[in-house]
Design a protein around this nucleic acid. Structure first.
Length: 283
DNA sequence: AGTATAACCTGTCTGC
DNA sequence: TGCAGACAGGTTATAC
């Protein structure tokens, strides 16, 4: 597909959004060669202090041999035996297309149709280059907790991390304990499980942990199947857009009736983040 | 150990 | 119509 072929325009991605981007990238850029790396004034801070020449030596001329996800990081494995690790933070976007998107911070010119662009209006996104030896212990070095999207994520895993006196809301957002959840999916999962976000993590009963585990799985699976949550009017070229916003039950529904009991959905601040929950259904 | 706040940035929305 | 202020899905550092 040609000009304007946009993969995804999900702002502020959580695990399901990153997974959707990675799935699309897999079919679009694996096996393709990086012909050039184009930077601009908005590239500042993207690579930290990595020297420009070193960067090009490790990237330009090599093939993309795999794309995968580690927590909320997008990983491009290159034939140079280096890994590009991209974190989109709040507003990062990946595009595969010929023309340069608005707020573009980096372009990888590829052989074949379309170049890979990283755009990011707020310039929080980061890109790191890892050698193979270092990358072998990526999760440990980055302190990435259990992958909530993994099929192997178990009730036992969840039990292991729910040992703190912090709120369950705070712990589920802590990527060093469990990775892939963000504010949307923490709020939705807790509603689904009928657990109040302010409960102490260690205070949950075995039955509640079981319910929460199931609700996390169900919520994330449905989010991935819907290709994430899009709040803007963005659509894929085929008319598609991330569609999980249609299924949100509490997130950004403050003051609206609970879908189970009709009482008002509450909104409260914790650690600068907005919690959404139903007082009646979430005890 | 836990919490709270600010910081990194810019665009958009709300209310006066 | 204009303007000020609040708000944004992530993460990290620092101070209580």
């Amino acid at each position: 597909m040609r000009r304007g072929f946009v993969i995804r325009n999900v702002s502020m991605p959580e695990g399901p959004e990153v997974q959707s981007i990675v799935t699309d990238l897999k079919s679009l850029i694996i096996g393709r060669r990086i012909l050039d790396l184009v930077t601009n004034e908005y590239t500042r801070r993207l690579f930290g202090n990595l020297d420009g020449k070193k960067l090009r030596d490790r990237v330009v001329g090599f093939e993309i041999i795999d794309v995968c996800r580690r927590g909320k990081n997008i990983v491009l494995r290159l034939s140079s035996d280096f890994y590009l690790v991209i974190h989109l933070r709040m507003t990062g976007q990946m595009f595969l297309r010929d023309d340069v998107p608005k707020y573009c911070r980096l372009t990888l010119k590829l052989d074949g149709e379309g170049d890979l662009h990283l755009a990011d209006v707020r310039t929080f996104a980061t890109c790191e280059v890892w050698g193979a030896e270092n990358f072998a212990t990526f999760e440990i070095k980055k302190k990435i907790g259990f992958d909530a999207l993994s099929p192997t994520f178990s009730i036992r895993d969840l039990q292991l991390i729910l040992v703190s006196q912090r709120s369950i809301y705070t712990v589920l957002l802590d990527q060093t304990k469990i990775s892939g959840l963000g504010n949307i999916y923490v709020n939705e999962s807790l509603f689904e499980a009928g657990i109040n976000p302010l409960r102490k993590a260690a205070g949950l009963t075995d039955n509640e942990v079981k319910k929460l585990h199931k609700s996390i799985k169900v919520t994330l699976t449905r989010a991935v199947n819907n290709r994430g949550t899009t709040f803007s009017d963005y659509r894929l070229p085929g008319g598609e857009m991330g569609s999980f916003q249609k299924f949100l039950k509490v997130f950004r529904r403050a003051g609206e009736p609970c879908l189970k009991c009709k009482s008002d959905i509450q909104r409260e601040k914790l650690g600068g983040r907005s919690m959404f929950y139903c007082e009646q259904c979430q005890k």
